[in-house]
C-alpha cells in the first residue's frame, strides 16, 4: 500500500479509470438509489399518487403516517423487535466469534459454516422450519413475539460473527499475554485490551443486525403474531392491495433510520474493513 500519495499522484491514478467503466458505475449507482429517491418523492408529493410531471410538495402524507393506526404501530413494533434482536445477536455473535477464532480443533471450519448458514439458507425455509418446530414441540412460541425474535436472532447473528471475526483475526494475542503478565485480571484484560480492538467490529455487526431485523420479511412470514404487524409486512399488504402514499411516508422514516445507522457505523468504524468481511 502506498501510504501517503501526493495529490498529483492520487489524481493521476483516479483519472486512470476508463470512461466506459465510470459510466457503467454511474448507471449502477442510479439503479441502487432510484427507488429510494422515488419513495421520498412519493411520500412528500401533494397529489393522490406520484405522477409525471409531479404536482408539488406537501407534508400531507407524513401527517397521515403519524396519525395512521396501521403504519405507525407497525413502525414501532419493528423498532422494538429490532432492538431486542440486536442485543441478543450481538452477545451471541461476539461470543461465537471469539470461540471460532481463538480455538483450534478438527471441524472448526464446519462449525463456522454452520453458524454462517442462516445467511445462505432461504428465509422462508428457516421460517417454516421454526414454525413447524413451534407447533410440534408445543413450547408456546407459535406466532408470538418471542417466537418471531428467535427467528430474527438466527438470521442476524451471522452478520455479527462476520464483522467481529474479521476484527479478531488481525488481533495480536501477545498484547493480552503482556497485560496478563503485568498483573491484569482476565476481565480487566478483556475490557482494556481486547474490547477496544474488536469494538468497531461489534458496532458494525450490531448495526447490521438491527437493520436486517427491522427490514426482515421472509423469516417473519410464518412467525408474525396475529395482532402485531412488522413494518415490512404492513407495507407488503399495502403494495398488494391499496398502494397508498402513506406507505411511502412510512418508507421515508425507515430510510432515515437506515441512513443514520450507516452514518454512525461510518463514524465509528472504517467502512473499508466491511468490504473485507467474509460472509460465507
Amino acid at each position: 500500500m502506498a501510504t501517503n500519495p501526493t495529490p498529483a499522484r492520487r489524481k493521476r491514478r483516479e483519472a486512470a479509470v476508463p470512461l466506459v467503466i465510470r459510466s457503467l458505475a454511474g448507471l449502477t449507482l442510479l439503479i441502487l438509489l432510484a427507488p429510494m429517491v422515488i419513495v421520498i418523492l412519493a411520500g412528500l408529493n401533494s397529489g393522490d399518487h406520484l405522477s409525471f410531471p409531479p404536482e408539488g410538495l406537501s407534508f400531507r402524507w407524513i401527517i397521515a403516517f403519524l396519525n395512521s393506526d396501521i403504519f405507525l404501530p407497525a413502525y414501532g413494533f419493528s423498532l422494538v423487535v429490532a432492538l431486542i434482536t440486536m442485543v441478543f445477536s450481538t452477545i451471541l455473535g461476539t461470543t461465537i466469534s471469539i470461540f471460532l477464532v481463538r480455538t483450534r480443533f478438527v471441524g472448526r471450519e464446519f462449525m463456522r459454516a454452520f453458524f454462517m448458514s442462516p445467511l445462505m439458507l432461504p428465509g422462508i425455509v428457516l421460517g417454516l422450519a421454526l414454525y413447524l418446530f413451534y407447533i410440534s414441540s408445543g413450547i408456546g412460541l407459535i406466532r408470538t413475539i418471542p417466537g418471531l425474535i428467535v427467528g430474527h436472532i438466527l438470521v442476524t447473528c451471522p452478520y455479527v460473527i462476520g464483522t467481529v471475526s474479521a476484527a479478531l483475526v488481525g488481533f495480536d494475542t501477545s498484547l493480552e499475554e503482556a497485560a496478563r503478565s503485568l498483573g491484569a485480571g482476565r476481565l480487566q484484560t478483556f475490557r482494556k485490551i481486547t474490547l477496544p480492538v474488536i469494538a468497531p467490529g461489534i458496532v458494525a455487526g450490531s448495526v447490521f443486525s438491527f437493520i436486517v431485523s427491522f427490514g426482515q420479511f421472509d423469516v417473519s412470514l410464518f412467525l408474525t403474531p396475529p395482532n402485531s404487524t412488522p413494518l415490512p409486512m404492513a407495507l407488503y399488504i399495502s403494495l398488494r392491495y391499496t398502494f397508498e402514499p402513506t406507505a411511502a411516508a412510512a418508507g421515508i422514516f425507515a430510510i432515515f433510520l437506515v441512513v443514520v445507522s450507516m452514518l454512525i457505523t461510518a463514524k465509528l468504524t472504517n467502512l473499508k474493513r466491511l468490504a473485507n468481511v467474509n460472509f460465507s
Binding site: 427507488p35 429510494m36 412519493a42 407495507l235 411511502a248
Partner: peptide
C-alpha cells in the same frame, strides 16, 4: 455509505419505489 444504505434498506420499501 450509498451502497450500504441501498443494501440495508428494507426490500419492500425499495419495491414501492420500483413499482411507482
Amino acid at each position: 455509505i450509498l451502497v450500504l444504505c441501498a443494501m440495508q434498506l428494507d426490500m419492500v420499501i425499495r419495491l414501492f419505489g420500483l413499482m411507482v
